[in-house]
Simulated assay, not measured.
Amino acid sequence: MRRYRGCGGSGRRRPFGSGGNGCSFADSPGSGLYRSRNGRFLGVCQGLAEYFDLPVFWVRVLTALFVLFTGLWPGVAVYFIAAFLMKLEPVVQPQSSSEREFYNSYTRSKSDAVSRVRDKFDRLDRRLRRMEDVVTSKDWQWEKRMRE
C-alpha cells in the first residue's frame, strides 16, 4: 500500500490545482521518520504509521498495549522521549536535497539556520545596492541619453 505525504495526513491524493500542496510518495528515497502534524497526541503514532506504512489504528493499539503492560509511567516516558527525539514533519515536503538539508539543519539548530538565511539576505542586499549604484550613476544617465 502506497500512501501520499503532504496531503493533509489523510493518505488520499488531492488533484493538483485543488488547493493541495502537491503530494509526493511517502516511500520516495529520503523520506524520513517524522512526527505527524495531523496526529492525535504529539503525532508519534501517526508518524510511525506513515513511516512503516501501517494503519494508524494498529500502531495506536500497540502503543496502548505497550503502555499498559510496561506500567503506566515507563510506557508514557518512552512515548514522550520518542516525541522529543522525532522531528516534526515539514509543512511542505522538501523537493530537493538542498531543501531537505536546510530543513534538517533548521531542526537541529535554529540559530545556524537563521544565520544562513541572514548571510544569504546580506549577499542579496549587497548585490541590489551595486545594481542601484550602477543605475543611479551619472554614467548610466549619459548612456541612457546616448541610446535615445
Rank of each mutant, 00 (worst) to 15 (best):
R37K: 07
G8N: 03
G20N: 11
L42T: 05
L88M: 10
F69Y: 06
D133R: 15
G47I: 03
D27M: 05
G43T: 09
V114R: 06
S10P: 01
L33H: 08
S98R: 14
G6M: 05
G32N: 13
V67G: 03
Q46W: 00
R123N: 15
F84I: 00
I81G: 00
F102R: 04
T63A: 09
F80G: 08
V78F: 08
S97I: 02
F121R: 06
W73K: 10
K138R: 11
R108P: 00
L88E: 11
R14I: 08
Y4S: 06
S109F: 05
S36G: 09
Q95H: 13
V61W: 06
G17E: 07
W58L: 09
F102D: 02
D133V: 01
S105P: 00
R123E: 15
S36I: 10
C45P: 02
D27R: 10
W140V: 01
L72T: 06
G71T: 01
L88H: 05
T70Y: 02
S115N: 14
F102S: 03
T70N: 15
A82M: 15
F57E: 11
Y4P: 06
L65M: 06
P90L: 07
R118Y: 12
Y79S: 03
R12S: 05
V61Q: 13
S137R: 07
M131C: 15
C23M: 01
Y79F: 15
S98L: 12
S109R: 14
S10W: 03
R147F: 10
F121G: 14
S28A: 14
G39H: 07
V91W: 14
Q93L: 06
Y79Q: 04
